[in-house]
Design a protein around this nucleic acid. Structure first.
Lengths: 227, 227, 227, 227
DNA sequence: AATGAATGAGTGTTCATTCAT
DNA sequence: CATGAATGAACACTCATTCAT
């Protein structure tokens, strides 16, 4: 899926970048406050520091603003993430850090991530799939790390579990923003990282003598024929 | 937080219930397709099988529709969940089942949960806090079970982890709907339950010889002074 | 102009009268509070003590309510007026009393008169002309009295003045309602009657010698440099 | 009570004034025909010569239109009134002229005055009190003149009568519009002025010795050729 | 005769988008 | 390149009126 083309009537690429940065910054703030649908293009223009006419010199439609935001947020997340990484770490330490760094970037870019998260569904199919593709690329970053760790025999992970765990990690990051009404009361970003990583690697530490196979539960449910 | 009052011009309580059920059903469908903001009240009325005037005999504002949806979805989830529970199960089996049953209910009520999940942020503060309270009550159901399991020494779980794990379970359920664009390609609800529960209880099965304490990682990160 | 026909689905004339009395009473109250246009038929029905369906058993349209009100108010004014009249009075005293009694009836039926006064313009042409005809009939009552007084040489009034004075009297009554925001602060109905009647009969008591001395006064003032 | 703020999305003050003049003109015409409540904002926009969207660039709500009308009408009345005044007249002549000029302005601005008169009650409390204050200021103009005349001993007027007479004069002006269905059949503005002023100063001539100098005043006014 | 649920045309208002200056 | 006035389709919501029960 290609980058969606956002039309501009202006030629100067440098100016386009500058104005769009202004737009994104203003839009993130506004969309956070009122949501994408309730924020008006006029408001975005004003918050960006120019007129509605000028706004439309740099975008083709309101949706483009949302697209620019989502696009920018992914880039910013990845960029900051890379800044945080210590390339000297190895083994499990590296794995922990990749995840923790991600959580911390999300914490840092809370508003941005939240907007992208809550409003991206309003994108057109074309724009959405581009954005989702970026999401998948982030997922792949975790997959790579996990596969590497598995190959190094640092962790044991079954085939089917791999992808799901990466989804879980990503969503655990998002959660920190979209469930902040609850989580921020109970956790700091430090404790949140600690417990999420702990949970991710060690689970609920099942007392082994109590273990029964999940398969059995499955069977029970299936014989009941419900759902 | 009390149940928000949704005004109706109609007196017959039975009829109100019937019509509101129609409205909720139609609204879930519509909001799924186009989202809350893009769906018009006229469309909701039409999809409900009556005129716009009649719609407004049973609600006070468009927001009330969303509120009715969210309220109904929670009730429906809890109700179906209870139906699925086999009260004869005990120990870890019960724990597995509580979680799996929840996932299966979410799967069954995918559209409903997705709408509630994606659109509830558009509720007014008053309505939202009522809805969030319901969410917290669901979280408590998991908490109770986990505490019970802990007391029976079926699992080991530290203080700070408990709440977060419950959030994780709830969100893992939601994920099945809001990330279905990815997850449903890779998993069936059966395999999804299996892997999520597996992951929840056993984590990534860290190879013990490779284990280092998370605290150490934390220290590394902190000494770097980043974030 | 004939009495406008207000259709009713009910046969029993006595019931029609009873219900319409209820309607008029409720409507006067409501129209006073919110005005004819902002008051809804539902509200009128409710304030009348029955359902919207029943309301429409006794009227054909919302406008009929206004017509009923206007019609009733005139009748009530005339009726109360006659009650107040002392037939033993004669001469100027009678004239004073006719006018004062009218003012006092208006004071008594303030809300009714105000509604009729402010809202009758919303009647259809047909209904309006019937109402205006009633107004003219009231005017004629004053005309008769004034003509009688003129014939008795109690007052001097020129041809063209007669009609206008009667309009003035009627409007002076209405004024007491539609300018009550100002008049009721400054006058009681007693003082209002006194001064209006005084003004009506004696005017501003122009100083007779003033006409002649004006030039003189002016000269004085002008030399003083004032004015 | 301060001038109510009517919000506009347009910045150019000159354009605002121009457009609002258009709006007022169109609204007076429409409100006369159908009344404030039955006239739609779309009709006002169309009659003003622009689209509904443009209308709302210059007002905040429908009520603002009514407010603009009332506000403008008062200003226009006062302005025209002042134009008509001959500052060289003194004594009773001046008094006659102040009143007659007012009647003639009302005649000239019939539609405007009638709308303001009949619809101002639909204003919000805030706007209404501002409008009523303007009305009171007009009343004070008459009060000043009467007090001056009293001090010059041109007229005799008792304390309690003064305010009421001014109300009467104002209402006599309004009457010429809201009772035109009757008055215009019987009077021209010339005869209406003559008889109202006559009545105002000399009453019903109970006392037979009352003079009729009005004819003379009329001649003065007529020879000036104004109005 | 009374009820009140159903109707849908109509209303005020918003806002993304355009385009002349 | 920037501006902001103009546009009008679209929307939430109201309410007089009807009619089956």
């Amino acid at each position: 899926m290609k980058k969606k083309d956002v039309p501009s009537l202006v030629k100067d690429e440098r100016l386009i970048k500058k104005r769009r940065d202004q737009i994104v910054k203003a839009a993130v703030h506004l969309f956070n406050q009122k949501g994408y649908h309730k924020a008006t293009t006029r408001e975005v223009a004003q918050a960006s520091g120019f007129s509605i006419g000028t706004l439309y010199e740099y975008i083709g439609s309101k949706e483009d603003i949302l697209y620019l935001v989502c696009d920018a947020v992914y880039d910013e997340v990845v960029e900051k993430w890379e800044t945080l990484m210590d390339e000297n770490l190895h083994g499990l330490d590296r794995l922990y850090q990749v995840i923790e760094a991600y959580f911390r970037v999300v914490d840092d870019l809370q508003n941005e991530v939240l907007v992208m998260y809550q409003e991206s569904k309003s994108l057109s199919e074309e724009a959405l799939s581009y954005v989702l593709e970026k999401e998948m690329r982030m997922k792949e970053m975790f997959e790579k790390e996990l596969i590497k760790a598995k190959e190094l025999e640092l962790i044991q992970i079954e085939e089917g579990q791999l992808s799901m765990v990466c989804h879980n990690i990503l969503v655990a990051g998002h959660m920190w923003t979209f469930r902040r009404w609850a989580l921020h009361k109970e956790y700091t970003i430090d404790t949140y990282c600690k417990w999420q990583i702990n949970q991710l690697f060690y689970g609920l530490s099942v007392n082994k003598s109590a273990t029964k196979t999940i398969t059995k539960v499955q069977q029970n449910l299936e014989t009941e024929g419900t759902v």
